[in-house]
Write a protein that binds this DNA or RNA. Structure first.
Lengths: 355, 355
DNA sequence: CTGAAAGCGCTTACAG
DNA sequence: CTGAAAGCGCTTACAG
């Protein structure tokens, strides 16, 4: 179907070996011959078959990135880091969206292994359950056996001795940081509208929340805690339910920035002011967070940097596995402020507005 | 290095042919034999080599998506449509970020051709210049010759007879629609802060702007027109320059939603109210547009649908090339309103706020 | 139901 | 500087 190297050889009147040498350019070929071959390549519009090559080299130049959803800014940013770091373009990055489904994750790993991918990077949280973790560790070993590697970006190793490199954040720490910030502002009744249950990131952030409360001598009020799905709409829904429950609170922590943005809108729709009536904070510091009104207080996570490091770990020389924990920083903006004396009331109108 | 089919055959005590048959499952194999083979596969953790397979089939199960930047919501949404449409997961989607660089685009097409990609989808605007268009058409023919295809998503064919399918929007129409909307609101001095110069989408939207003005009997005022780069920061910068120029205007059209959001923030920072002093509109209707304050009036583009259709065109049965133009709709929100009597003034405070 | 053999499109020692 | 030959890891007629 497609033009083959043999066809080029025939047209140029040389052997396939010679064509190959011209193409790869690292071998002496007579100038005349080279020219003839180059002309034949041009005339025939020959494009080398990467599969035939890969068969010889046992490497493919492909790296796989497995993520929940590329249209989520968290993943988009990490992915951009990955892409930029593999910037010389000699590599092709395959993206696999799992929508958080572990089965799809394994299917994709399998496909990537078939492609003899040079590395597989899994971005984002993973399930906490033991069965899943064992299976992932097995895949890590499989990849290693193929001379490929697994890098986890945004979650810890599934089991201690899994052959995988890790670049992640101190998610527990971020949760604690946010609580400290709010407590410092005088808040005592802090709601937590978290991410999907049973996943590493959600669990760790929530753990940090609990630890922070503990440290401040505050109890966890089940009424003020709900799970979500890391989406803007999920945040909106959870906040709406919280407001309608009549519960008493002066601050809300969203499981991530998108949820916090949903919370912001839900409060606005309910006629509550931020931070006058309720303070709102998130995790991540995605770009749009700063453009919200009020601008969102959040924990900055170096997402692009994480992607960049994940890629470089994927091609680092062999050696003992590494775990890199990237630092986070609290970014205080307008959505969090001192607690008010009374509980929030519908329809209150005080707003602080500036950037 | 990696486990081969031959190794499995040896361990199971059968021929390679038999192992292949068990793996592909479409051929009668004795139950006993099948079990032995399956066990060997499991014990050895055998994963078939996709390259060896591709060599036989002349197809790879790979589709390439070439886009400017996946962390731009426009592209992220289209890409999500592509991914979802190829949802059975038997295909791998390779993403290639070009950052708008045509050279990178061609490099990626070449790599995808080497991989014998089943299809290549290019998303977003392209340069208008003739040299580029000729080259792209040549690649389209090359792809066709390899039994692959090119789909253009968001731009027209480079030349009339290029063998490429197209799914796009009526960009000229969207520009006109926005002007009509603003003129209907009484605006006469409308600024246009457009996208990158020389690219199809920017040019078409601007053309629509000019046509709309024409239809309303209004002149184009060069003072009120500037180019940008389709980013939030670019919109912010362009709007800031416009404000500082002291020019007289009552509405701003951003080249896309991101630019419009930047414009919104710039106006806020300059103490101007939207839509009290200035109306702002954009193109695209990315999700966050509705969460801005004020919520952004924009032209809704069915981005995900475009991605979905692009993928399905990529695998549609052969035939004459198709061009699908998806409909757009004006979404009026809070950022546009009736024109005021006088010109905008710094520090005016009237705001309309609701959703 | 199973196996031996040819071949997919390349590259790379090996010879000359 | 150039070519013939073997081989990468699979699948698929062809035989039996």
């Amino acid at each position: 179907m497609a033009v083959t190297l043999a066809a080029v050889a025939q047209r140029a009147g040389v052997s396939p070996a010679t064509v190959s040498r011209v193409l790869n350019g690292d071998y002496p070929v007579a100038v005349e011959t080279r020219k003839r071959v180059e002309r034949a390549v041009r005339e025939l519009d020959y494009v080398v078959n990467a599969h035939a090559r890969a068969l010889l080299h046992a490497t493919s130049g492909i790296v796989g990135a497995i993520l929940n959803d590329l249209s989520d800014p968290f993943f988009a940013l990490v992915f951009r880091g990955i892409q930029n770091a593999s910037g010389d373009m000699s590599r092709l990055v395959v993206t696999c969206n799992t929508n958080g489904n572990p089965d799809r994750e394994f299917t994709y790993i399998e496909m990537l292994r078939r492609q003899r991918a040079d590395a597989v990077i899994i971005v984002g949280a993973g399930p906490e359950d033991a069965g899943y973790r064992r299976q992932l560790a097995a895949q890590a070993r499989g990849l290693r056996a193929q001379n490929s590697r697994l890098v986890l970006c945004g979650r810890p190793k599934p089991i201690r001795d899994a052959p995988a490199n890790v670049v992640t954040f101190d998610n527990v720490g971020t949760g604690r940081t946010l609580v400290e910030h709010l407590v410092g502002l005088g808040h005592r009744r802090i709601a937590y509208l978290g991410g999907p249950v049973g996943r590493t990131t959600s669990n760790d952030r929530y753990r940090g929340f609990v630890e922070g409360l503990d440290a401040a001598g505050l109890p966890v009020d089940e009424q003020l805690v709900a799970d979500g799905d890391f989406t803007r709409d999920g945040g909106y829904a959870a906040a709406t339910r919280l407001i309608e429950s009549g519960a008493d609170f002066t601050a809300i922590i969203g499981g991530n920035d998108q949820m916090a943005i949903g919370v912001l809108v839900a409060l606005r729709d309910a006629g509550l002011s931020v931070p006058g009536d309720v303070s709102v904070v998130g995790f991540g510091d995605i770009p749009i967070a700063a453009d919200m009104i009020p601008a969102l207080t959040t924990v900055h996570l170096p997402l692009e940097e994480a992607g960049r490091q994940a890629l470089s770990l994927a091609f680092a020389p062999q050696g003992p596995t590494k775990t890199v924990t990237l630092p986070h920083t609290l970014v205080v903006r307008d959505s969090s402020g001192p607690v008010r004396k009374q509980s929030p009331r519908r329809g209150s109108a005080r707003t602080r507005k500036h950037r």
